[in-house]
Design a protein around this nucleic acid. Structure first.
Lengths: 190, 190, 190, 190
DNA sequence: AATGAATGAGTGTTCATTCAT
DNA sequence: GATGAATGAACACTCATTCAT
């Protein structure tokens, strides 16, 4: 009895992220995942009952890992701007260091595949971040605009910057980071 | 490939936009398009040589129509902020009034389907807008940040606002527009 | 535009009957049917939406054709014994001349495939025959036993005789027929 | 192939009979048998080299058990009618008390699975019963019809009655049994 | 002996595309 | 030009069976 191999589980995940990044969710075939992971196609069904389940499972995993990375080093004792800066940097780092997971999440999210349970999970980070910004509004540091607008503004700032760095249009570094964050912060600031 | 019947051409286009919005690009089938357009599936091949071509053609059409709408009423004689405000409003209007075309463009753009020729066209609006912002930087009205960063900032502002309105989270109106635009403008402003 | 070919429809039916007789319902594959009918496998789906539907459709067709053959030459004006003899002979003939259809019906009937609508149809012949026997009981020609028992007795007589002839154990002919029918009739007779 | 654990052997058999009755031979899967028997699928291969062998083995077992039950209490010293009546009752009882085994035998017999060796065994009961009826013919108690015809007639009588009782159409009891047996006997009788 | 893991050879079904009319 | 019919190339998924432990 071979032990159900964690390495294989990981191989499947990595293969899937890789393939989605390379060819898009649309072209993703179970047979390709298996080949890339070094398995027989039928073996995938030992680990996941269906393609849908495999994708769902990866999505939820990526979502929660992302969340953990974003709030790393966040210190509730620090002042608001510092906390937001930390998280903002984490968000950028997350995108730059785990681009495959991010690509996967975005493609899957916008692909009419998303199951109900996955949709729920989607809001972890939203809640956490909303409360942070709300506190900023109550202390009159942030503009009294609708919260979703502020949140979207921050997230877009991160996404845009990361994309430009990834595309080679801009080069990552402290100066660029500072410029980009100030752009973001000024937009929020009262 | 010049169609005899413009009505059928239009029916195909509308059917495709509709179906992509309803079910996603992933589930789009030639047979469905034909049924929704009131044609036989094989007739689609009278108008387009392949599915790929059909999608490509729709993408380029949507792109250039979008561009025309965005620069409508733009007056090069007006001051910078007014011009940007006009275009910003056009961008929001465009998203709210032609959501199907926008959904189609975004899904298609991020789907590894995009052909080379389509990718080129993609930059029309980019060039136009880049020059506008560049002028703003030269007159020291806008921050001296990398142009792509500023452009992305504006586009995100538009996309975020539109999405929130479409999702019913916020309600469109002069006040909201003003708030959202000021958020956008402040971020750009020196 | 080629006309949807009735010949192909028939080819599919014949191929299916043939294959079920030769290899059993269990081994019946869509690809085999297609090959035997001289078509591509996917063409089967032009004529039937699924394997289940194909089988269902064949079953209902066989059922109703069978019924028509069984009541051929039945003359309500004739005496009871003559009518039953006629039908009894028709039943035997039906089994001997269309063995494939009969094999198919029996295999399909006992295969947990049978759909609800097919199950209904199943009783056409039952009703017709039940009334005939009931009349015989009322005129005190037939035993006053439960009708289902009498009906089953006749049907078994037919099935058993046919099987023995088909298996080559007995040889068909007027004498055998007469012996077998008298066996059947005596069992019914008061 | 001699099993260590007789309980497991029995569990496999019972599970198989059960599943065939519930879902039909067509839907029978090794994994289902294993689950129903409380084993791992691979364990089945410790007891039987293949699915074919498992089914074959069960078939032969059911056949010989059936035979033992049918000739129970048969007393060669008694008169013919009494012997046949006893056996006839045993046949009905056998069907009513072990319906799963009977269902299995019938489905398996008519499923093109039957192996050569199984086919031979099939005739135990045939021989025994043939000699009994032959004796009846020689003493001029039974009709001088082909033996297979007489045998089939009796077996059908049993099968029909049992089915009607199982289906709830008729209710078992001494009166029904007597009526049904007389129907059967009269058909045989000279 | 017992089994969880792994798999190859199918299976039914889908769908973009072609073709004869 | 328009189309119903036909199809080949996939594709997701199944299942009896093998194997290492």
């Amino acid at each position: 009895m071979r032990p159900k191999d964690d390495l294989k589980q990981t191989a499947i995940e990595q293969a899937t992220y890789q393939l989605v990044q390379e060819q898009g969710l649309l072209r993703l075939k179970m047979a390709d995942i298996a080949r890339a992971a070094g398995l027989a196609a039928s073996t995938l069904y030992v680990y996941y009952p269906s393609k849908q389940d495999l994708l769902d499972s990866l999505y939820q995993q990526a979502k929660s890992r992302s969340f953990q990375r974003l709030i790393a080093q966040d210190d509730p004792g620090k002042p608001l701007k510092a906390r937001i800066r930390t998280i903002w940097h984490n968000m950028v780092d997350n995108r730059l260091q785990y681009p495959q997971e991010l690509v996967f999440m975005e493609q899957y999210h916008s692909s009419a595949f998303l199951s109900a349970s996955s949709r729920e999970l989607s809001s972890n980070m939203q809640h956490f971040f909303a409360e942070l910004l709300l506190a900023g509004q109550q202390s009159e540091q942030l503009k009294p605009l609708p919260l979703p607008l502020l949140m979207a503004s921050v997230q877009s700032s991160v996404r845009d910057l990361s994309r430009l760095i990834q595309d080679g249009v801009l080069s990552d570094g402290p100066d660029l980071r500072q410029a980009a964050f100030s752009l973001c912060w000024d937009a929020l600031c009262a």
